[in-house]
Design a protein around this nucleic acid. Structure first.
Lengths: 101, 101
DNA sequence: CAAAAATATGAAAATATGTTCATATTACAT
DNA sequence: ATGTAATATGAACATATTTTCATATTTTTG
């Protein structure tokens, strides 16, 4: 049987893994990066910038929103998505600073 | 058709996503964290610390090794795994610093 | 109010990942 | 040489993720 400490650690790691998984996808990473440049973007703009279809973008955005990485605010018939916390973008540097990339 | 810039960006993002995916799993995160404390660990030690079975640990270690996150060196009949670049652990703080955790 | 624009939703299909189990390999000890 | 400990491998299975497609919802415009 596992120790209490291990259990707790697993739980914490699950949370972190969950957020990392929300981000660990080429399209979603691209979206995040684009948001760094232009703050908030709606679905149409992301479609334009990525060349991907509406539904796919929507699914990706909603997944990131569900995990707390993005937030959205409606503006007429558009919905603007933006980063909940732009410091998440440090992840990029973090990875790039490692030897293996 | 996609622009050259987009293609290049997608490629870069794929690499980053690949590394994030290699890490985005509770067990693998735990292993990484344990390695921070004790530098190098062999499979038996990780089994002991996590309470998980040999083959599963092995699969996880090898996945991380394949992605360049871990390296291994044999020592008798043990194999010691360790971080290729300990700065990868900044990811933990990076995530924790974000509001949403 | 009807039509159109922007986005969301949900099911189905395709693909990828995680886990288990049995077996193979490697190195050491006797 | 044989046995045993430590780890790797690979196939089978279970589960999760990604993508597509068709349709629904929401808001604006005429």
């Amino acid at each position: 049987m596992k120790s209490k400490e291990t259990e707790i650690s697993i739980e914490k790691m699950e949370k972190i893994a969950d957020i990392l998984k929300a981000i660990a996808h080429p399209v979603r990473l691209e979206i995040l990066k684009m948001m760094n440049n232009s703050e908030a973007l709606n679905v149409a703009q992301i479609m334009e910038l990525t060349g991907l279809e509406q539904s796919l973008i929507s699914h990706h955005l909603i997944k990131m929103k569900d995990k707390g990485v993005l937030k959205s605010v409606r503006n007429g018939r558009n919905i603007n998505y933006s980063l909940v916390d732009p410091s998440i973008l440090r992840l990029f540097d973090c990875i790039k600073n490692c030897n293996f990339i």
